[in-house]
């Protein structure tokens, strides 16, 4: 066990935890932030995507000991009331079916738009190909990203 000060969604959290614990399980089990989802544990599905210093990472492959003073943002911290343009675009296109993967999709999409504010279809497909949607809402995800892009 080891003590960590973690900056998550703008707040500092102190916790005593096995240093090898992936951030995914720190968020879910220790901090009760359930929005970040477990899908595969091997960075092959994208359900656990969070932001590290503003950019998408797979939290299942991010040991808590490596985070140090870097800022983590989860879906709960993306906006106060779901009013981030990407979240709003998701609602406008009524993207979700089961909804389980969507937090990871949204976090990945926000990161994509930060790096590439005006992505082409190919850019979106390529940047989002690490995020599986088993209900296959891919076309709506793409449409929502295009809607959110200019905002």
């Amino acid at each position: 066990m080891a003590k960590f000060n973690l900056k998550i969604n703008g707040e500092t959290h102190r916790l005593d935890v096995d240093p090898t614990t992936p951030m995914l399980w720190v968020l879910r089990d220790h901090l009760n932030l359930q929005g970040t989802k477990y899908g595969c544990g091997v960075a092959a599905c994208g359900a656990c995507t969070v932001h590290l210093n503003g950019y998408a990472v797979r939290s299942c492959q991010l040991p808590v000991s490596t985070v140090k003073d870097q800022e983590i943002t989860t879906i709960e911290g993306l906006s106060a009331n779901g009013d981030h343009p990407v979240q709003q675009a998701w609602l406008e296109h009524d993207v979700a079916q089961c909804g389980y993967c969507q937090a990871g999709q949204i976090m990945n999409a926000v990161s994509l738009l930060k790096l590439n504010p005006n992505p082409t279809d190919e850019d979106i497909e390529s940047a989002m190909s690490g995020n599986i949607c088993r209900c296959a809402t891919y076309l709506r995800i793409k449409a929502a990203i295009k809607t959110a892009a200019p905002k």
Binding site: N32, L33, Q34, G35, T36, K37, Y38, T74, I75, E76, L78, S79, N81, G82, Q87, W90, L91, D94, A96, G99, Y100, Q102, A103, I106
Partner: peptide, 23 residues
């Protein structure tokens, strides 16, 4: 008529809706 998913806002804000989220 088309009506939005009543759970939409909870999904996009990461609310604990799923079995795995239950504690």
């Amino acid at each position: 008529s088309p009506r939005k998913n009543v759970e939409g806002i909870n999904i996009v804000t990461g609310k604990p809706l799923f079995g795995l989220d239950y504690r």
